[in-house]
């Protein structure tokens, strides 16, 4: 089995602090970590390898500093890691990211399964997994909470739905995105960490994945951030007066606009 896990480096959400004056996120001094959902993707990939044999390749697209999350992946037990990093990849939206990752997967040999976290906590879009699958023209299953049966060419998985779950069978290769209840990610051991420290992290650019220049990065991104702004903030402690009905109406008016 050749399992590919895709991971993203994100600012540690547990360290996120808001500047009380400006309402903006304070980014200084915030550690960058593996996107929490992606840890479960990586853990599942490692478990599959441990029970069925094979190898785990980990992909990450990001700036040069994203190398660190790939070292963390090696410490946990990844066999091979690749950093997709190049100025031309920068500014990618979910479409360009899906394309870039899909190109990288296509360059790897005999991939059976690609596992991504359900979404990244910095963007929360949940679009790259299905987008990659579309680019690779292979099936996908989102929000997987359990793998029931896995062979070289078939996967049966439990997928969370809005009202419960479905048991879905797809032929492999396929892309799945996973939720946290799937497993508990391991803490890496000292030996793994030492191995990770010394490891060379290969970096791939557009040529390495034979990407078309106008389909990556900012150029390949149909969506543009037109502007960013602070949401209207109500100062702390706005008291809502009136009869219970009036209070309830005032509250709902504020909450529904969030």
């Amino acid at each position: 089995m050749h399992i590919v896990a895709c991971i993203k480096q994100v600012p540690d959400p547990s360290q996120a602090r808001i500047d009380r004056e400006t309402g903006l996120v304070i980014r200084e001094g915030v550690d960058k970590i593996i996107n929490p959902y992606d840890l479960h993707a990586l853990e599942e990939a490692l478990r599959i390898k441990e029970t069925k044999g094979g190898k785990v390749t980990v992909l990450s697209m990001g700036p040069a500093s994203a190398e660190q999350v790939l070292r963390d992946a090696i410490a946990m037990g990844a066999d091979q890691v690749i950093l997709l990093s190049d100025r031309q990849f920068a500014g990618a939206d979910t479409l360009a990211t899906s394309y870039t990752l899909a190109r990288a997967v296509a360059r790897l040999e005999d991939v059976n399964l690609v596992i991504c976290g359900k979404q990244a906590v910095d963007g929360d879009t949940a679009q790259v997994g299905p987008g990659m699958a579309a680019k690779l023209d292979i099936p996908h299953i989102t929000q997987v909470r359990k793998l029931r049966e896995l062979t070289e060419d078939k996967l049966v998985a439990e997928k969370l739905t809005d009202r419960g779950y479905e048991v879905v069978e797809v032929p492999l290769p396929a892309v799945i995105t996973v939720v946290k209840e799937l497993n508990e990610p391991r803490i890496p051991g000292l030996r793994g960490m030492m191995r990770a420290k010394k490891a060379e992290i290969p970096v791939w650019g557009p040529e390495d994945i034979e990407a078309e220049a106008d389909r990556i990065g900012l150029k390949g991104s149909p969506t543009q951030v037109w502007r960013t702004f602070e949401p209207e903030r109500h100062r702390k402690g706005e008291m809502l007066e009136g009869t219970p009905s009036e209070q309830a109406a005032a509250l709902w008016q504020r909450l529904r606009s969030l």
């Binding site: 391991r186 803490i187 890496p188 051991g189 000292l190 030996r191």
Partner: peptide
């Protein structure tokens, strides 16, 4: 154990760090 922490005081010849 999985984190190799029981290995820290054991000599390398005997599986330690």
């Amino acid at each position: 154990g999985e984190a190799d922490l029981f290995a820290v005081w054991v000599p390398e010849e005997y599986g330690g760090l």
